[in-house]
Computed example of a mutant assay.
Amino acid sequence: MKVAIIGASGKAGRVILEELAERGHALTAIVRDAARTQHDTVLKRNAFALTTEELTDFDVVINAFGASPGNEHQHVDLGRHLIDQLRGTPTRLIIVGGAGSLYVDEEQTLRLADTPDFPSAYLPTAKNQAKNLEDLRQTVDLHWTFISPAAFFDPEGPRTGKYQLAKDVLTVNAAGESYISYADYAVALADEVEHHRHDKERISVVSV
């Protein structure tokens, strides 16, 4: 498939690009600075300026954008821009979300970001990614999937090729840990790209 990755030079974006490249998909890295990626096909563009015409050239657009400190509102701003450009089209939007918007109870009354021990430094990102998810859920004419990692999203962890999926409640693995490596998260995301099993849904990923 033809897949574009916004933020392909970021930590998660690079790993997702590598996983999809291994699977033989036609990939385009959408980045502001082409020097930050070694991928062959690059679209040098400010993500906020991407047009419907540009985006609908792809089967799937992956939003792996990471906002800098103090600019966390851009998760909402970019999310709304992509919704506006892609609604009513067949192009699918997959969002690399966060764990902060996951609930910690089965009754879904308390989100992880609202618990006392949630790191304050990550709270603005968590709140804005949660708002992005809310905007997506209020959009009816868009094919989207929001994928949250486990609470410990490990950039150094191994690729085991195994994972388990959950929905809106924070889930733990057999060791009682909410953990996923970037590499195994990328496996789960690539599987969703290929199989499209969770249209208009948020899913979460944890190791086995």
Rank of each mutant, 00 (worst) to 15 (best):
T115P: 08
Q108C: 07
I62Y: 02
V3D: 13
F152V: 08
P69L: 00
A4D: 15
H73I: 10
D33H: 06
D77N: 13
G97Y: 02
D40T: 06
G97Q: 02
Y163G: 02
Y179Q: 01
L112G: 01
T28H: 02
L189S: 01
I6D: 09
R36V: 11
I62K: 02
S204Q: 02
R159E: 07
L170W: 03
L78Y: 10
G88M: 10
V193Q: 04
G98C: 02
Q38G: 11
G7A: 00
R14E: 11
L136R: 08
P69W: 00
K44W: 10
V31M: 09
K11T: 06
L110W: 05
R111Q: 08
L27N: 14
L123I: 00
D135S: 13
E18W: 08
I30K: 06
I62W: 07
N71D: 09
M1T: 06
D57A: 15
R202Q: 10
G7H: 00
H81M: 10
A67I: 09
I95N: 15
G10C: 00
D40G: 01
Q129L: 12
A175G: 07
V140N: 12
A8I: 07
Q129I: 12
G66K: 07
A67W: 08
D168N: 08
S204R: 01
G161P: 06
E106T: 09
V193G: 04
L189M: 03
R92K: 10
Q108E: 14
W144D: 08
R111S: 01
E54D: 06
H195V: 14
D135F: 08
D57F: 07
R45M: 02
Y185R: 05
L17I: 15
V140S: 11
L102H: 04
K200Y: 07
V96R: 00
S9C: 09
A183K: 15
D135N: 14
I16E: 11
V193C: 09
Y185A: 04
L93W: 09
R92Q: 07
T139F: 07
F153A: 01
L78C: 12
D117M: 00
L133N: 04
S178P: 05
P155C: 08
L136A: 13
S101L: 14
Q38R: 12
P158L: 06
A29N: 00
Q38K: 13
L165Y: 03
D141F: 10
D114Y: 05
A166Q: 11
T125H: 09
L110M: 14
G79M: 15
A151V: 05
D105M: 00
R92V: 01
W144S: 13
E19L: 03
L93Q: 05
R159T: 06
A174D: 05
G157I: 15
D135T: 09
S68Y: 11
E177I: 13
F152P: 09
W144T: 11
K127G: 12
A190L: 14
L55Y: 04
P119S: 00
D84G: 09
G157S: 07
A99S: 15
H198F: 05
A175R: 12
